[in-house]
Amino acid sequence: MKKGLCFLTIVFLFLSSSFAYPLTADEIVEKAEEAAYYAGKDGRADVKMIIISASGKKRIREFTILRMNTKGKDQKFYVYFKAPSDVRKMAYLVWKHVGKEDDRWLWLPALNLLKRIAPGDKRTSFVGSDFYYEDVSGRDIKDDKHILLKETDKWYVIKNVPKDPDSVEFSYYLVWIDKKTFLPMKAEYYDKQGRLYRRIIAKKVEIIQGYPTVVEAVAEDLIRGSKTINIFKNVKYNIGLKERIFSERFLRRPPREVR
C-alpha cells in the first residue's frame, strides 16, 4: 500500500511537470523578460542601427554594448559609440535599478567630461532612432498589468496595460511571445485613441551559446513613417565581465571588450 502511494506520487509529480499547469500571464511575461534581457551572466554585442526617415534619408549608428547582471534584477550597461564620427568614442553608462530611477552618465571625450544625465523619460528616442531607451534596457514588468489574450500553438499574445496611464504615451500594447523560446517576437503599441502607431518586430533569431537571441529587430513609427533596423553582430554571453568596468575609470579608458 505504502509502495503504491509512493509510486502514485512519483507518477503524479512526473505528470505535473510535463503537462504543466497553464502559465499565468505574469509568469509568461517574467519568462519573456528573462529571455530577452537577462540571458547569461553578462554579454556583449556589436550593434548597427540603420535609421530610415519617412523621406528615405538614412542614418547609421554603430556601437558596442556590454551588459552585466548584478544584484537581483539590477543590471549595468556600457555603450561605446563608433559611428558616426561626431559621436565616436562617446560612452554611455547605465546602472539600471528595478523599482528606482536608473543612474545614467555620458562620457564626452572631446571635453574629457563625465556628464550625468537626468533620469527623465525612458520613452524617448535612443540616439535619434525609433527605439526608445526602454526598448534597449527593458521596461519594468511591474509597470504594467498583463492579460493573456490568446494562446495558439506558437504564440502567447499578451495585452499590457500601464498601471499609471499618464506616465506613458500608449494606452496598451500587445506582445507576441514565442512559446518555445519565450522571446517577444512582435510588439504593437496603441495610442490613447486606440490607434496602432508603433510596432517592433524581431526579424531574425539565432541560438548563441544555447541562448535564443534576436539578431535583427525593426522598430517602426507608423505615424511618421520612419523605421529603424537593429543588427546585432558578434554576440557573446558569459564573457566574464568585471563589474569595475562599469565605472568612470573605464569611460576614460575604454576596456578592451569594446575597442
Binding site: A118, P119, G120, D121, R123, T124, S125
Partner: peptide, 10 residues
Amino acid sequence: YEREIAKDFT
C-alpha cells in the same frame, strides 16, 4: 538642478 521637463527637453 537639472531635469527633463518634457520629451527631449531638459
